[in-house]
Amino acid sequence: MADFVLKVNGTELHVSAPADESLLFVLRDRLNLTGTKYGCGEGQCGACTVLLDGQPARSCITPASGAAGTNITTIEGLEQNGQVSPVQQAFLEEGAFQCGYCTSGMVLSATALLRKTPHPTDEQIVAHMDGNICRCGTYPRIIDAVKRASQSPAKAGGQ
C-alpha cells in the first residue's frame, strides 16, 4: 500500500491504496466519487475520462499515485455554486443522452476540447471525441451540445 495525496476538485484528499491501483478505482471505491464510470478498463471507451491539469485522461489506465501533484477534475467538480457548467447545461438543453452512462466522460472530454479550441468545427469535435463511446448512439446530439456550449457566453472551459 502507498500513501499519497490527491487534489480532486480543489480538495486535497489522503489516499492509501496499492501504488498501481487505477485512478478510476481510487475515485470510485475509496473516495466515493462514482460519477466517473468504468466502461472497459483499457482506455478504449472514454467513460472514465477525468481532467488532469485540464487535459483529458483515461482514469482506468492512469495509476492513482501518478496523478498526485496534478489538479484532478471529475464530473462532480464542474458545478460552481450550484450552477452546472455551460457544457453540462448544453447537454441538458440538447437532451444529449439516453441511459447517461457515457455522459460524465463525454462532458469532461468536451470541456477539455472547448478549453483548447473554443469554437471547434464538426470535424474537430469528431476527432477529439472519437475515443468516447455512446452505445445508445446519441452522437449527433452530443455534437450539437458541444457546439451549443461553444456559443455560450459563459465560455465552456471556465471553472
Binding site: 460519477g35 464510470k37 443522452f97 447517461g100
Partner: peptide
Amino acid sequence: VPKVNGRDFVTGKHKYPSDIV
C-alpha cells in the same frame, strides 16, 4: 418534456447499479 432528473445524469449524481455502496 425533458428527461426526468436529467440534471443528475450530467452531474454524475445518479447512482447506477454499479455505483451502489
